[in-house]
Nucleic acid binder design. Structure first.
Lengths: 345, 345
DNA sequence: TTGTATGCGTTATCAC
DNA sequence: GTGATAACGCATACAA
């Protein structure tokens, strides 16, 4: 007597809880309870464990999710992993989330609204337990649905005001304030900034830190020193070019993100300018190679691992107490790593 | 009359296919067929679309997966995302996989066998459609189960021989051969290598390329010039230190991965050595900052986007023809990016 | 504690 | 084409 094991997908039929119950000689409910860590009579437990081992049974999380409405999957959408920041966050996040028995379903949208929508649709359809993302103003309405539907939402890196969500950010303004102060302490007065998108909270806050530092020292803001770099390497390149073409160019530049720092360094190299001799440069975001740069690049280091830990902490808390929690916001401090890319004027 | 909408998880009850069928005034089967793109009478189609819109219904992929045994999720395990390579691969992979209507469930194991097992368990439990990973010898038995169970498997970066799986690699040996040849062409004869793990196919092949280049020029292999760097930055640092402490140190070093290059650069900087004046250096793996380095670092650039595309191509082919395919292996060529980190001797 | 029975939201197999 | 209905594998309320 042969059993047809052919499946629509061509996969072998996996043993089910019923198989386990049968070979263990107990009821299916008992197996289920064992699986979920309830108290079981010792003899039965041994039987079940033996059966599971023998059949190499593995609980079908899909079927379980249908009952419990818990998939143990957490959605993560980011604009890109190219930019080292998100990659390292993912590295740590995947680890800390793992410890809570979950995994990350990742989606990369490249700032394309259509793909972002698609990501949210996909996640909604997959019934993820929670959503982690960098805020994006364009998604407000769509995210309102998500929240209303009961899916916990966690923003990091970039805020999206008005939504009931947990949040993890760094003190962008404070850190920017401090690096620019460092420049001021060295005697610089003509300080340019490579701005990210000022519509993003992180872009705006980094700019505000710059603004505040100058204002405190009674240095008037020079509009031509404020260059939009659009977060990108090419934007940073062009912005640096514009700044350096000024009749009275800045003696120092604050690049408010890693890709823009890359752009600035690119322009400088292409034009034979040396850091810090021809220009002092500080960067928001630190990467390993900055230490190895000729002079060393002074940079704001975000506490990437702590960010990931904080996100997970909020996630776990929220998931264990679905409703009875007010949204929390965690703000982490950055370190300023002083290296050799600035000089006294 | 109030309906209790409270759920075990505290989430709002989502509309189901039944709700859609009711408000559209058709049978549930009809809705299902519409959802799956089958032919539907025009009037019904309009009714259904209207109902879906009105209820903002979204198909429960979990329930669907239970029937179809297709989750549209692809597992990805990597040792780390810290190392830019995997991050960029993920970037491209998430995009190309998205185009096929799937998403990546990611797991990061940090080379810890326990966590790797855990990842495989988790994936198996979640019934992923396919698994993408870097090969690891320790997982052979466990992966055999995976394959036997019918889950398509795709290796990249590092092979694991003997398993029926699709594969995407770069021509590690050829690329290494060419960079080392470049060093030889410049007159170097004392060439050191920072090796990765020789148990990994990529580590071994990169070494073999080095070996082959020297042998072809009749330069005997000098064992003390072959330094194990264990793939890591600290390993690369130490290995460089050992090499440079030799009575007759190499005039050039081939660092066979980015982290090890980082380590080499670190040691050189700490010891006031200049590239290429005091030492010529070439790297396997290219990153944006290498162009911006003082001299520019000559490097092997892996075609990251093509790797991702190739993986997805194999994935889609395999998923659409479950059984009727023999495993394929795709090998991609690397570019050698000549910059200023080498000098003629 | 254990067994039994019901339902979760789909898809698929029937007759119609 | 369409409508009813039986699975899919599991968790749980209920009765024992």
């Amino acid at each position: 007597m042969t059993v047809d094991e052919s499946r629509p997908t061509g996969r072998k039929r996996s043993p089910t809880i019923v198989d386990v119950a049968n070979t263990a000689g107990v009821a299916i409910g008992t197996v289920s309870r064992y699986l979920n860590g309830h108290k079981i009579r010792r003899g039965n437990r041994d039987q079940i464990e033996h059966a599971i081992e023998k059949l190499s049974y593995r609980r079908n999380a899909v079927a379980a999710a249908m009952k419990t409405e818990l998939t143990h999957m957490v959605g993560l959408t980011v604009p890109t992993f190219n930019y080292e920041f998100h990659g390292v966050i993912l590295e740590h996040l995947t680890r800390s989330v793992r410890r809570s028995g979950r995994a990350l379903l990742t989606y990369c949208h490249g700032a394309d609204p259509k793909i972002m929508e698609e990501a949210l649709d996909f996640f909604a359809s997959q019934r993820i337990d929670a959503l982690i993302m960098t805020g994006d103003a364009g998604m407000y309405d769509r995210l309102e649905e998500v929240v209303e539907q009961g899916t916990p939402l966690i923003f990091y890196n970039n805020d999206l005001r008005g939504l009931p969500a947990d949040r993890v950010f760094v003190d962008n303004r404070g850190a920017s304030h401090r690096v620019v102060q460092h420049l001021l302490d060295l005697g610089h007065e003509r300080i340019g900034i490579l701005c990210g998108d000022l519509g993003d909270s992180s872009g705006r806050e980094r700019f505000e830190g710059y603004e505040q530092a100058l204002t405190e020292r009674r240095i008037p803001l020079e509009p031509s020193y404020i260059a939009a770099g659009g977060w990108t390497t090419s934007g940073g390149f062009d912005a640096t070019k514009r700044l350096m073409a000024l009749p009275n160019p800045p003696t120092a530049i604050f690049a408010s993100s890693y890709p823009m720092t890359l752009g600035a360094l690119g322009w400088l190299k292409d034009n034979g300018k040396k850091v810090p001799d021809d220009l002092s440069l500080v960067s928001f975001d630190d990467v390993p190679l900055f230490r190895l740069h000729e002079a060393g690049i002074t940079a704001v280091a975000q506490p990437l691992e702590e960010i990931a830990e904080a996100i997970t902490e909020l996630l776990v808390a929220r998931l264990s107490q679905p409703e009875h929690r007010v949204p929390r916001t965690i703000v982490l401090d950055c370190d300023i790593i002083l290296r050799g890319s600035t000089r006294r004027i």
